[in-house]
Design a protein around this nucleic acid. Structure first.
Lengths: 220, 220
DNA sequence: TAGATTGTTAATCGATTAACAATC
DNA sequence: TAGATTGTTAATCGATTAACAATC
């Protein structure tokens, strides 16, 4: 089985998320590619290709076995495994990440937040202690955390990334709107949220017009 | 001048952001397509095409006039105009959005948050009052807010979207991991953050390997 | 069987990159 | 001038969609 492309991982995760929300505990034990395609507003062919890529076999006239799809995607992406993670920056955004219970269900366990603001140190956020930056190395090593989240202001992001890498972090989730220089074997995912705002502002300017089906969505 | 594509708007915004961070007040008054391309880790040809699309002319051997690029992008995307916005969901994520000062510099002015939790009502978050949901319609109309941000749990997102639309909101920034059904003339931007986490988890599983420069880019 | 849905190949479409002339 | 960089067309690449046979 080959390595999945980024877009495939994202779509597979959306299938997984949809099935948990809409099929878990339901009476239907199969789902068609057309149903998943409608939810994501993509072509059903794409869904069939994605499912084929992870080895799920469907059944003509019936669809794909729901439980099997859920289980296969989870195992292929790695949603079952437990991963310890740390958050640097105990502001509201860092707190939101720490508190969001959904992440726990994907196997991610936040063990600590770090912040240089003494007022935040010692507090608990989402059940996690807030430590000063100096403790980052020891805490990461003790918990063997592999995932680091950066929710500090843009100007501090590079320094934080370097600290995380030195402590042994392998993957970084960067919410600062900066590029990061890291060793090649460290994976970085940029979550430049303000980019989304720019797009919204642009569309506020545009004359109202008929929108494509792709823009409107239909939850089941 | 044609309508810009989503990907173009996102790249243009990144150029803008980069120039403000790295060139504003600096001595250099021009920037090359190669420099912008390196920052975004894309091809320089792409940058030249994007700038041509908004009508910025460069100078061979010199580059593009920095101030002109900044000004043109801002006006083309609409970053100069003032837009009132509201946030539904006064949890940590909603608070993070309200507090993030960067948005103000793009012309977005958050006028209020809404939450059904009585403990949150009456408080101030990022300088904005928190009201009960019942006040949403009047507040949106009074401020002529056109932009609505949804930071409530997934299960409540559709109901909130409907309420926002009824109040006259034209663009929705949806942080819940759900699709939304809205009239065709309402624009929705989905910010499914947990999708990013799924990608990170997947890469934690993968064998470490040399990464290409392109892989490090990862614009969302 | 008939018909719905999968699985897969082919065609299309769009985005990215390469090439290179224009030009300051 | 020489050379760096733009501007633009052509080529490539990949992703999406269409078509249709396979099959339960």
């Amino acid at each position: 089985m080959g390595r999945l492309k980024r877009s495939q991982v994202e779509r597979l995760f959306s299938y997984y998320h949809y099935l948990l929300q809409h099929h878990e505990g339901g009476e239907a034990n199969s789902v068609s590619s057309a149903e998943l395609a409608e939810f994501l507003e993509i072509d059903a062919t794409q869904v069939r290709k994605d499912l084929a890529a992870v080895g799920v076999r469907g059944c003509p006239r019936v669809g794909y076995p729901t439980k099997n799809v859920i289980r296969t995607i989870a195992s292929r992406i790695g949603l079952g495994a437990k991963h310890n993670a740390v958050i640097v920056g105990a502001g509201r955004l860092g707190g939101a990440v720490a508190e969001y219970s959904g992440f726990t269900s994907y196997g991610v366990n936040f063990v600590a937040l770090f912040d240089d603001d003494p007022h935040k140190q010692g507090a608990e956020v989402g059940g996690c202690p807030v430590y000063p930056m100096g403790k980052l190395g020891p805490v990461v090593r003790r918990h063997q955390a592999k995932l680091g989240v950066i929710t500090v202001p843009d100007t501090a992001a590079q320094e934080v990334a370097t600290t995380l890498v030195e402590a042994g972090i392998q993957s970084i989730w960067n919410f600062a709107h900066t590029q990061l220089t890291v060793p090649r074997d460290v994976w970085v995912r940029h979550e430049h949220i303000s980019t989304g705002l720019a797009e919204l502002i642009y569309h506020l300017k545009q004359p109202r017009r008929r929108r494509t089906a792709a823009a409107a969505a239909a939850p089941r």
